[in-house]
Computed example of a mutant assay.
Amino acid sequence: MVSYFDEHGEWPSHRQMAVALDINSSNLSPYLNLLEAKGLLAKIAGKYRRNRALTDLGRQFVTDQEWQPRLL
């Protein structure tokens, strides 16, 4: 999400995230909800598409050198 945002100036769509993760887009919501519950993502009020963004904690998490994908 961070690299997409840095390159395009907006957050990726749910479909784009699903493609990047190689999962069916209908199965993406549980993952996003879990990341939101952990405080790593937040919903952007008033947006229907591209409606989730990394929180400060999420940005810190992905830039931390100790970050490992299995922790999600």
Rank of each mutant, 00 (worst) to 15 (best):
E36L: 04
P69N: 10
G58S: 10
S25I: 06
D22A: 04
L35A: 14
F61P: 05
A37N: 15
D6W: 10
W11F: 02
F61Y: 14
R49C: 02
K43Y: 07
N24E: 15
D64C: 05
A20F: 00
Q60E: 15
H8T: 07
P12C: 11
L41Q: 06
S3K: 08
R59L: 13
K47E: 13
A37F: 03
R49D: 12
E66N: 12
A53M: 05
M17C: 06
F61W: 14
H14W: 14
R52N: 14
F61G: 04
Q16Y: 07
L32I: 11
E10A: 08
L40W: 08
L71Q: 12
F5P: 02
M1C: 02
Y4N: 08
R15N: 07
R49M: 02
G46F: 03
A37H: 08
G39K: 05
G46L: 03
Y48P: 00
N27T: 08
N27W: 12
A53F: 01
Q68W: 11
E66F: 00
G46P: 00
Y48C: 01
N33L: 06
L35M: 12
L34V: 03
N51Q: 02
G58T: 13
L57K: 15
P30M: 00
M17I: 07
M1K: 09
L71I: 04
W11A: 08
W67E: 09
H14I: 02
G58A: 11
Y48H: 01
D22Q: 09
L71R: 08
